[in-house]
Design a binder for these strands. Structure first.
Lengths: 329, 329
DNA sequence: ACCTCCCCGGAAAGCGGTTTCCCAGTCTGC
DNA sequence: GCAGACTGGGAAACCGCTTTCCGGGGAGGT
């Protein structure tokens, strides 16, 4: 393994000079020596040892991002946005997947702390469990105490920079749009009762309906994924319009209806939330609330890296997108 | 920032003892001291500095994985598999996305080398450009010379452990299945002419047709993504059956046909390759060649970490899955 | 000419761990 | 009762790089 010392020796200069030439510094180095060092480095195939650099500089050029599941296009889009932003800043990205296990999330924060990453991005809503949240918060504090920056998207952690999708407002806007098409009997495939994101979307939806004087929607709980939507859809029978609190669930619901011979949108209208790009060719095209996921990921990184006197909460609005999965009554 | 020295001082022991207690060692430490150290570490909130550890140990617990695009479910699945396997080994993962830029790929290898990651996984086929390939290979050699391990999946790099999907055979098997349904006039949405994966799938397909004495398929080149499939599909008019060399392209093709009022499978049959999970609810359900992507990702990690005397090529068979997007003629 | 200032090069002190080596004390076996 | 093996503890030498500090020499000012 070639070290800086090897390069310095080969070039006949000191370690300091070699370091200044190869790894940047405020100090100048004369053209002659500079050339000698560069040639030596090239000949030897020198690559700086980042571990040593990180140690010496006291700061790494790595950020961490923690998501539930990379194969979920929602998180993939978020991660992609954050990674593009990171690449723009010359940062490397360590990705951790928790598979929705809060313990894993805490463990990752600890690990990323140990790695002394510059920032940690936490993506994805979490379960509303005070004990677990407290432990996560404690771990984050520990990390921040040692100079780490944190931001989260779609989380619900006080005191942390946050990119907050307007879940409640999005749900409400969607409800108004659907009511505007003449729907009155609604069901909500509401996901897990204690998942904040799901709860907010559902609550906004219900509140808007109430405001319009419409009957309460039927709330059907279940998992937050495709199969959860699939299962919940089977119990939605009397509704003319079904709101799945995310697109992936909506796709599950569509599959369930298809199997049952229930036509969408003729027999029932279906709407989702997120506007997942991978699903844009789904048939029927899904009505949903568009979230700029890639931008949100990038924004989260910005927030984390930003000055950040006190915790900033950046609200991101969703936009209702009406497509063929709903019809006018 | 709490260091090991702080812990040692607080516990009233030497650095060596503290290290042995907290960060593992072959040596034993007496129960009394051990307890003191652990308590001190806990009170102080000590987290080992991985940069220092990596430097001292000369080996990191990080692997790198380089993909083209995380939002492409193909790569997401591969990455997910690799990350699960990595988590099982207690390894962290740095992910890099190249967005199909070979220069980026080379740059990432260099960066990951600098990070002294334990292994690098290269995912995704590359363009057949000798000059660029040579440079990548050179960078990989440099990395391996310093003890790094490399594996790739779906690549075409000699001398590197490889997880190789049976693209040619899969294409051929698919052709035989489709021919068995009575199709004779084929088109192939073949992707870029110099992309190895695309070429192999296409070649296998064409070869099988020739073997069966069927007319040559019409080869339509274009980008390897959804829009490439969409565009190419518009030129496939006389075929009764269209093979898109990956699922994402097939979805693009389906979208194009839908817009044109061409019914699938009544007017034209469509098949893809990969069997992307996110698309399983697509309508019509896509006939394809299933690849066990998650397992392939995990396998790649195993190969990279494995003993690896000489380069192993692990062939992974695809399985034809007939679904409603094709019909019997 | 003389002094100051600036510029560039090198020596060396860290950064936070791991691990080798040495040492004192305790167990064994005879 | 004593040599020899073993045990657990600590001092200190690294790991590879950054950066402070110091010094020598040339340029510029008076």
């Amino acid at each position: 393994m070639v070290t800086l010392e090897d390069v310095a020796r080969q070039a006949g200069v000191s370690l300091a000079t070699a370091s200044r030439v190869l790894n940047g510094s405020t100090r100048q180095v004369g053209a002659a020596l500079r050339a000698r060092v560069e040639r030596a480095a090239d000949e030897l195939g020198y690559r700086a040892n980042m571990a040593a650099q990180t140690l010496a500089r006291g700061a790494s050029n790595v950020i961490g991002i923690v998501v539930h599941d990379l194969t979920d296009p929602y998180f993939a889009a978020l991660a992609d946005g954050a990674m593009r932003a990171a690449a723009g800043e010359g940062l490397l990205v360590m990705v951790g997947t928790t598979h929705r296990d809060p313990e894993q999330e805490i463990a990752y924060v600890a690990t990323l702390n140990a790695q002394r990453v510059r920032a940690v991005l936490l993506a994805g809503s979490r379960v509303d469990d005070p004990e677990v949240t407290a432990r996560l918060r404690h771990e984050l504090e520990r990390y921040r105490a040692s100079g780490g920056r944190v931001a989260c998207v779609g989380q619900d952690l006080l005191g942390v920079d946050t990119v907050a999708p307007a879940n409640y407002e999005g749900g409400a806007a969607l409800a108004r749009s659907l009511a505007g098409l003449g729907h009155t009997r609604f069901a909500v495939l509401a996901g897990p009762p204690n998942l904040m994101t799901a709860r907010d979307r559902c609550a906004g939806f219900a509140a808007a309906l109430e405001e319009l004087g419409l009957p309460e929607p039927r709330i059907l709980h279940g998992p937050f994924d495709r199969d959860g939507g699939y299962a919940a859809a089977r119990q939605s029978r009397d509704a003319t319009c079904v709101f799945a609190v995310n697109d992936v669930m909506a796709v599950g619901a569509l599959a369930a209806y298809r199997e049952q011979g229930v036509r969408v949108p003729d027999d029932v209208s279906v709407a989702g939330f997120d506007d997942i790009v991978t699903l844009r060719d789904h048939v029927p095209a899904l009505t949903t609330v568009r979230l700029p996921l890639t931008d949100m990921g990038a924004l989260a990184l910005e927030l984390a890296l930003g000055a950040g006197e006190r915790a900033v909460v950046e609200r991101v609005a969703g936009e209702v997108v009406l497509r063929e999965s709903v019809r006018r009554l």
